[in-house]
């Protein structure tokens, strides 16, 4: 993916965020250009917040890292599966079941994505 211009592949990936909040789409576009970890977290936490049936009173990035995705945040197992599929599609990664099972908290999710998604441009 070219870091400086929109490619058909990038547009196809952006289309997967149709219906998601604009801030998530913008963060994804910025991440594709700059590969900045803060933008990556905006995409992941913004998408997760959108997938929750009850919107969090506090933005996810202001909650403690120890917050449990299911019990504290209210993510049901389907929402987590939706998030995993979206991340695989957006970032061309493959996430194993064991990896999903190991992600229990917001901190786990943040660390997992940072380790899994290449921060160097793939161009």
């Amino acid at each position: 993916m070219s870091p400086e211009s929109s490619t058909p592949a990038q547009n196809a990936k952006l289309a997967k965020l149709t219906g998601y909040p604009e801030c998530v789409r913008q963060a994804y576009e910025r991440f594709c250009m700059k590969r900045n970890p803060d933008d990556l977290q905006c995409v992941v936490f913004g998408a997760l917040a959108f997938l929750l049936s009850t919107k969090p009173a506090t933005p996810l990035d202001q909650l403690p890292d120890t917050s449990l995705l299911q019990q504290d945040i209210g993510a049901d197992s389907l929402a987590i599966t939706e998030l995993v599929f979206l991340l695989e599609e957006l970032f061309d990664i493959s996430i194993k079941n064991e990896e999903i099972m190991a992600i229990r908290t917001l901190g786990d999710l943040r660390a997992f994505v940072l380790a899994k998604v290449p921060l160097q441009s793939m161009a």
Binding site: T18, G19, F50, L51, D76, L78, A79
Partner: peptide
Amino acid sequence: NCLEWTHPAAYTVPREILRG
């Protein structure tokens, strides 16, 4: 993409229902 669907305003369809 179900997120692009529209329906009469009289109905409330939460996203967690719409998704399936």
